[in-house]
Structure formats: structure tokens, C-alpha cells
Design a protein around this nucleic acid. Structure first.
Lengths: 102, 102
DNA sequence: TTATTATTTCGATATTTCTAGAAATATAGG
DNA sequence: CCTATATTTCTAGAAATATCGAAATAATAA
């Protein structure tokens, strides 16, 4: 189980529209992820700003990067996100039963 | 489905240790929630600071409050949290299959 | 070597968030 | 009315975050 501060830090990172969009873009990008430049073009975030957000996401473990020559491919870390989801379900949904109609 | 900005805003709120602790405390508190004062004593957060965090959480819909005489009871909004979890699963886990061993 | 492409680092500013004491408000009881 | 209790609002300083142009770095190709 992820520890509380890692959970909080990761949720905080996803709690920003730019970073949430980046993560979703990467999820859609397929198994090899996407180069920083592609994210930049698709989401139209200035590169220095993008780099800032990416490094924060890498830092908490939401994404990983690997360099191929000049290009850096970014990948969503699904296990990390699963960890977050599990935390929310196990720690924050105790005693709650979803109604059958949903 | 919750919209993106509501998701981001809610994740940002949970992305703070005080607020994450508050939410978890409320989840454990049972069906009638907990008074602000009880949260204050349990988590030892100065009341003005606590009030600040609570009002932020109410604002995005993570908790609801109802007043009984002088006391305000706080309740976690499970439907809201479920909305967040569903968003993360549907929008951020596409194409990911958890390995069977976990 | 020079140029080109991909990305990050630096630096500066603007904005938001966090924190908590002090004062204010609301409600109840004596 | 006076006092006690519960909570919020006001205020302000400190810290963190967001933004982005310009310069720097890295890798490749010409």
C-alpha cells in the first residue's frame, strides 16, 4: 500500500488541469507513450512550462521517461495510478455501498 | 461523469495531508459524520486552519455539512469520491490490464 | 565544424495556498 | 442579560506553485 504522503503528493499532481490533461494524453498515446514535443504540440503548453509539469509528475512516480537519442518518451505509470485508486477505495470508501442502480 | 475541472479541483483538495486525513477521519466516523470540534481534537489542527480546509472541501463537493444547534456535522460525500474513482479508472486506465498476481 | 532539433534550466514575476491568532458570529443555558 | 461553546471570518506573513521567455545543454546530421 502506498503511504499517505505519496498518495497526497500524487493526487495533488493530478489536481491540476495541465497535468491531468498530460496524463490522459499519455494514456491515449499507447504502449510506447509520447515524446515531450508531441505533448507540447497536442496540448499547446509552452515547452518550459510543460517541462516543469512533467518533472513534477516524474518526481512523484506518475510517469516515467526514457530517452531515445534526442527524444524523451513519456509513459503513464499505470501501477502507480492503480495504487492511488486502491488507496481511495480501501481507505476512503469503507462502509459505503454503491446503490444497485448505478 | 464529472467534468475535468471538477475532477482536478477535487483531486487537488485531497492532495493535501490535512485534508486527506480529514476525509479519512470522516469515513471512519460513521453514518452521521463528525462535528468540526471532534475533527479538531482528533487531528489537532487549529480551528481556523481546519475551518479553511473544510470550507474548501465543501466547495468542491467532497464533504457536506449539516448544523444541529451549535454543532456542525461533517460527512464525506461518497458519491463524489466514487465519481473521482470512476473518472480515474475510465479515463486514465484505458488499455491497462492489472496483472493476475495482484 | 556548423546547424538543427529536442528538451531542460535559469530567472523573474504573478498568483495561490497554508497557517494561525484575534475578533466576530451564532446558539444555548443559567 | 451574561456566559460558555462551536465555528467562521478577518488578516497577514511565509511558502509553494504556475507561467514563460531566454539561454543552456544534448544529440544528431550536414
Amino acid at each position: 500500500m502506498m503511504d499517505d504522503s505519496n498518495v497526497a503528493a500524487s493526487l495533488a499532481e493530478l489536481g491540476n488541469m495541465h497535468r491531468l490533461s498530460i496524463f490522459r494524453f499519455l494514456v491515449k498515446a499507447g504502449h510506447e507513450g509520447a515524446p515531450v514535443g508531441d505533448i507540447q504540440k497536442a496540448l499547446e503548453i509552452p515547452s518550459s512550462t510543460l517541462s516543469h509539469h512533467l518533472s513534477r509528475m516524474v518526481k512523484v512516480g506518475l510517469i516515467t521517461q526514457n530517452k531515445k537519442s534526442r527524444t524523451i518518451f513519456c509513459l503513464p505509470n499505470f501501477e502507480h495510478l492503480e495504487g492511488l485508486i486502491s488507496f481511495l477505495q480501501e481507505e476512503c470508501c469503507m462502509g459505503y455501498e454503491k446503490s444497485a442502480s448505478r
